[in-house]
Simulated assay, not measured.
Amino acid sequence: MSSLTERAEQAVGAPPAAPTPPAPPSAAVEPLPNIEIEGPGPDGPELVSAVVAWSRVMDDIRVIGKNEKYDAAGTRYNFRGVDRTVNAFAPVLRRHGVLVIPSKVETSHRDFKNSNNKIQRECTATITWTIYGPKGDSFPAQSAGEALDSADKGTAKAQSVALRVLLLTAAMVPTGDPDPDSTYAERGEAVVRTPVSYRDEILDLKTSSARIKQITQELVQLNLIHATVKNEFGEDETLHALSRRVYDERLGGGQ
């Protein structure tokens, strides 16, 4: 009997293979739209100054909505990703003969362990850009981006975020969100927050990393930053140390 047949007979009595565990949740992303913008034509873009060309880019980029959704690890929010932003800007920049070139990149890195004891690298990139117009003149701009990665992609991610920040900020791109003035809320008596209430909010899995940064600023203003509370392990810990530790854990977990 051949070895192939023997293995087949042994497999008959073998227990069924364990089911494949479900994939972890990831961000729900809509397909990028097709951008159809008429090119500059055979004669190229109109030879105007860099500032005028950029203002025309602003005029063409009317809105980039926050259509991408993140829903994982207990955190939900909408955002405008790098790909969606570049997908909207690239054809418009070409139409008006505008180049966006990084002329100086400054980065800083910090390594730490997340809650799973896995090494993460945080990268902050500050980039000086030169924006050229169709006549060859230019003006400078600067933006910064921050990213986390467990491999070797942190610097590239941070630079991509800095590009998104530059394009959205320099072009003053609307989000399409409701105007804050469209709602009215009558101000009532201010609620006095206690150190314990801040502790509970920091430890809540629904509290985003951005909110934790905001909490830290509130604690400084309220002179509660060094207040001591019982953490989730029943140990004494200052709110400053607790917020920083949880913030790092949330970033390390992709939140």
Rank of each mutant, 00 (worst) to 15 (best):
Ser3Arg: 15
Leu4Glu: 14
Thr5Gln: 11
Arg7Trp: 01
Glu9Met: 13
Gly13Leu: 12
Pro19Lys: 03
Pro21Trp: 06
Pro21His: 02
Ala23Lys: 07
Pro25Phe: 00
Ser26Cys: 00
Ser26Met: 01
Ser26Thr: 10
Ala27Ser: 12
Leu32His: 01
Asn34Arg: 15
Ile37Cys: 05
Glu38Tyr: 04
Gly41Lys: 11
Asp43Met: 06
Gly44Ser: 08
Gly44Met: 09
Glu46Ser: 12
Leu47Ile: 09
Ser49Leu: 03
Ser49Met: 10
Ala50His: 01
Val52His: 08
Trp54Lys: 09
Trp54His: 09
Val57Cys: 13
Asp60Met: 14
Val63Ile: 11
Ile64Val: 15
Lys66Glu: 13
Lys66Asn: 11
Lys66Thr: 06
Lys69Ile: 14
Asp71Ile: 05
Asp71Asn: 15
Ala73Thr: 09
Arg84Leu: 15
Thr85Gln: 08
Thr85Trp: 04
Val86Ala: 12
Phe89His: 03
Ala90Glu: 10
His96Trp: 14
Val100Trp: 01
Ser103Arg: 15
Val105Gly: 02
His109Arg: 12
Arg110Gln: 11
Asn114Met: 04
Ser115Met: 10
Asn116Trp: 12
Asn116Gln: 15
Asn117Thr: 06
Ile119Arg: 15
Ile119Ala: 14
Ile119His: 03
Arg121Trp: 00
Cys123Ile: 03
Thr124Asn: 12
Ala125Tyr: 00
Thr126Glu: 07
Thr126Pro: 02
Ile127Asn: 02
Ile127Lys: 01
Ile127Gln: 05
Trp129Met: 03
Thr130Trp: 04
Ile131Asp: 00
Ser138Met: 13
Ala141Val: 01
Gln142Met: 13
Gln142Tyr: 00
Ala147Asp: 04
Leu148Gln: 02
Asp149Ala: 06
Ala151Asn: 11
Asp152Arg: 09
Gly154Glu: 04
Gly154Arg: 01
Thr155Pro: 00
Ala158Val: 05
Leu163Asp: 00
Leu163Phe: 01
Leu163Gly: 04
Val165Phe: 00
Leu168Lys: 07
Ala170Pro: 01
Met172Leu: 10
Met172Gln: 14
Val173Leu: 05
Val173Tyr: 04
Pro174Lys: 07
Thr175Asp: 15
Gly176Asn: 06
Pro180Leu: 07
Ser182Thr: 14
Thr183His: 11
Ala185Asp: 14
Glu186Asp: 10
Arg187Tyr: 08
Gly188Ser: 13
Ala190Val: 12
Val191Ser: 05
Arg193Tyr: 12
Thr194Asn: 05
Pro195Arg: 09
Ser197Arg: 08
Tyr198Leu: 03
Glu201Ala: 08
Ile202Val: 12
Ile202Trp: 02
Ile202His: 07
Leu205His: 02
Leu205Met: 10
Leu205Gly: 06
Lys206Tyr: 04
Thr207Ser: 05
Ser208Met: 05
Ala210Lys: 13
Arg211Cys: 00
Lys213Asn: 14
Thr216Cys: 13
Thr216Trp: 06
Glu218Arg: 08
Val220Glu: 14
Asn223Glu: 13
Leu224Asp: 02
Ile225Trp: 01
His226Gln: 12
Val229Lys: 03
Lys230Thr: 03
Asn231Lys: 06
Asn231Ile: 02
Phe233Glu: 14
Phe233Arg: 08
Asp236Lys: 11
Asp236Thr: 05
Thr238Gly: 03
Leu239Trp: 07
Leu239Ala: 09
His240Val: 02
Ala241Gln: 10
Ala241Cys: 02
Leu242Gln: 05
Arg244Gly: 14
Arg244Ile: 14
Arg245Cys: 06
Arg245Met: 07
Val246His: 01
Glu249Phe: 15
Leu251Asn: 14
Gly254Ser: 09
Gln255His: 09
